[in-house]
Design a protein around this nucleic acid. Structure first.
Lengths: 236, 236
DNA sequence: ACCTGAACACCGTTCAAGT
DNA sequence: ACCTGAACACCGTTCAAGT
């Protein structure tokens, strides 16, 4: 992706065997993921890709969870944060940045899922958070921005995790069908409100819905102050 | 670990060997989960618990994902939905029900994670959705309630998934420490807004924060109409 | 119809031993 | 210091064969 490495070890020929580095491992992992999905990014498969043994990877990466976190951060480092400093309505710019975050995660939905469990902490993530805070600065106080950024990213991440994995999962659509069937066959007596809504309930998280969600969150944030700390604020 | 196994095979005595059923399997799975965590609820471990072979389970359960969904629905069926029909402010009652949902999921956080991927569709879930719709009915139009219930459950589920798994994950706290360290050592130049907030950024999703989140969502929902369908509404 | 053993094709992680 | 093979302790799922 960056630049062509000029044949590092190569005793004579060989595709290179690029000498293990943390960065190289992460890059290879992203490659495998793009080609075969995160499910195939296992230590063993990855070692094979790098022409080494699985055990070697543990010199550079603590475990699979850390590997995933590194992969995600690499992706986040590629985000376009220019809207942060652009002209125009801060709300619109905020939504734009959030959308670009969701877009990245939706392309690699399994990573989104792992981000839900292991909170990222790399430079890519910190950059994003800092940008979002800058945008929120225009609209809310700092303490509220702190919770707000968490809420917004949380929503964005979990939406991506949900959507994406669902596309792939369980033979695409079968699940949807099952739910649709359930709703259709549901006695209006047992679940009256669901029956009344019918299929609208699963119109699914299209783009409209995500944008609506962002707007709900932002409006809500603007209207809801943080509660005053009740117990001593410094209590560990 | 649990108790001394009292002579297992015995053709005469025996605790019963309860004859496999879908319900029995789910129940046993919940037992194993409560005792050893969802990570240990594997087909093989479960089969062992039920004194049979792993292959036998596939007669009753399509795969591991379905098993997890069944387990979750069983848990949801136990929710207290009485606030739905109680007296009082609908917003408060809505938050109460959502809180009870989160409480269940937080006790079994790994299930929350799986719920994010495989949308539940059992009676327990439908019951909950119907109840939430009933509550929302007091405040918003039906079409908005449809999206709202999704958004609220989504937030609740992912919060539980995040919190819970994080407690266990990566040696409890190490990750937090790492992030805190990063923030502390962060040059205020590179991430000025993060530096300005300092540790408040990771004050963590305590109860206050979840309640704040629900209030943000509800306020936002009340203020944000669904967009008018732009393209032909019936387009597949 | 239900149940089973055995097999297939995998996993993450550790560790003693090599270079 | 880094790398490796081999081992440990597991997985989900399928399938032919039994009852």
């Amino acid at each position: 992706m960056t630049s062509g490495k000029p044949a590092p070890i190569s005793r004579r020929e060989r595709p290179a065997k690029p000498a293990l580095t943390r960065e190289g491992i992460v890059e290879a992992a992203l490659e495998v993921m793009r080609a075969e999905g995160l499910g195939r990014v296992t230590m063993r498969r990855l070692a094979q890709q790098l022409d080494t043994g699985a055990a070697s990877l543990y010199v550079y990466v603590r475990n699979t969870a850390e590997l995933h976190a590194l992969m995600l951060d690499e992706l986040l480092a590629g985000l376009d944060l220019s809207p942060v400093t652009a002209e125009g309505n801060w709300r619109d710019r905020l939504v734009t940045v959030l959308w670009s975050y969701v877009r990245v995660l939706t392309e690699h939905p399994e990573l989104a899922q792992s981000a839900l469990v292991t909170r990222p902490s790399g430079p890519g993530y910190l950059n994003l958070v800092d940008g979002l805070l800058a945008l929120l600065d225009a609209g809310v106080s700092a303490d509220r921005a702190s919770w707000a950024v968490d809420l917004l990213l949380h929503f964005a991440t979990s939406t991506a995790a949900e959507q994406g994995t669902r596309q792939r999962a369980i033979d695409a659509g079968e699940e949807e069908d099952r739910l649709a069937e359930t709703i259709a066959s549901t006695s209006a007596a047992r679940y009256p409100h669901i029956a009344a809504l019918g299929l609208d309930l699963l119109s699914g998280p299209g783009p409209d819905r995500l944008t609506w969600g962002f707007n709900v969150l932002i409006s809500g944030i603007l209207q809801t102050p943080r509660p005053a700390p009740d117990t001593a604020p410094g209590s560990a």
